[in-house]
Design a protein around this nucleic acid. Structure first.
Lengths: 157, 157
DNA sequence: TTCAGTGCAAAGGATTTGCAACACC
DNA sequence: GGTGTTGCAAATCCTTTGCACTGAA
């Protein structure tokens, strides 16, 4: 979810990244970018396509969306998320959003985002200890939320 | 890598988990379990099969290994590892090994395991904060090791 | 006008599944 | 002897690609 101004800046950035690679900003590409930027939550390529279709905004083809997604990632508009969810890769808006990690309920699938500077610091410290320069990390906590604690564990997808 | 005694205990456990599900401990299943337990590092199903074949221990079929792996995971002999490595799922020995996370060099692919009680504690704290019971987590640090810091980033698979 | 973008269909690659023959308990 | 197991091949599922046509700069 983004404000109109934020979306404009994001599209501007997208366009400039495309330019650098001598690629073009097409109508379809822009629709896909907008749909992604407006997506509230974590989406798969298939789900993004569904939104595009439902809004009648565009008749984008599945393959086209698959081709656009890596470009959106490269431009920093979206980023991969929810690695542990077995099925297909999911993404979330990254543009002008602060870094966060996720805690996922394995029973109902609820996802909560959290920010912990202590955690970030600790990770930098660990990377230092092993003489790694830290570029990124994948971090997800898995458990059961307050509503599901009593129910038996059951991995959702 | 495990001692002979550890392997015996692991096979015992495997057998009992199979029993609970009225499944059987076959020769092939045992070979697969042994190969997995002896594997030093992080393996894919395909790689595990390769070891089985090379040792001439067994003519296990790929599909059979795919069928055995979830059972080995359920019995706690192995666990999924290296989620962020795009290609296929990898596993590592879990039986009688202490919990650890990984730091991966995105340039040369080197993987270092680390243990941090502070990190574990912090994760429990965060789960508490959101009223989640913490069952598990996925955590990988990505960066470049001391040998690769100068080289440009290049994701390995 | 010239590359790049798109739709479509077909290819890929990892994993799964149906089924008949086979092996444990 | 009766189940569960295995090999094999075919089927899936997500994702990628080749190609002829369309579109943006």
């Amino acid at each position: 979810m983004n404000s109109e101004e934020s979306i404009s800046r994001a599209l501007e950035r997208f366009k400039s990244v495309l330019h650098e690679r001598s690629l073009k900003m097409s109508t379809v590409r822009e629709s896909i970018a907008r749909a992604a930027l407006n997506y509230d939550g974590h989406f798969s390529v298939e789900e993004l396509l569904r939104v595009l279709r439902s809004k009648g905004v565009s008749e984008a083809h599945l393959a086209t969306v698959y081709r656009a997604v890596p470009l959106l990632v490269e431009a920093g508009l979206i980023q991969p998320a929810l690695l542990s969810k077995g099925d297909h890769q999911r993404y979330e808006v990254a543009f002008e959003r602060e870094h966060h990690d996720h805690i996922v309920c394995t029973s109902c699938g609820r996802v909560v985002e959290f920010v912990s500077e202590a955690l970030e610091a600790l990770q930098r410290e660990i990377a230092d200890r092993y003489e790694f320069s830290l570029d990124d990390h994948v971090h997800e906590l898995l458990g059961r939320c307050s509503d599901c604690r009593d129910k038996p564990a059951a991995r959702h997808s």
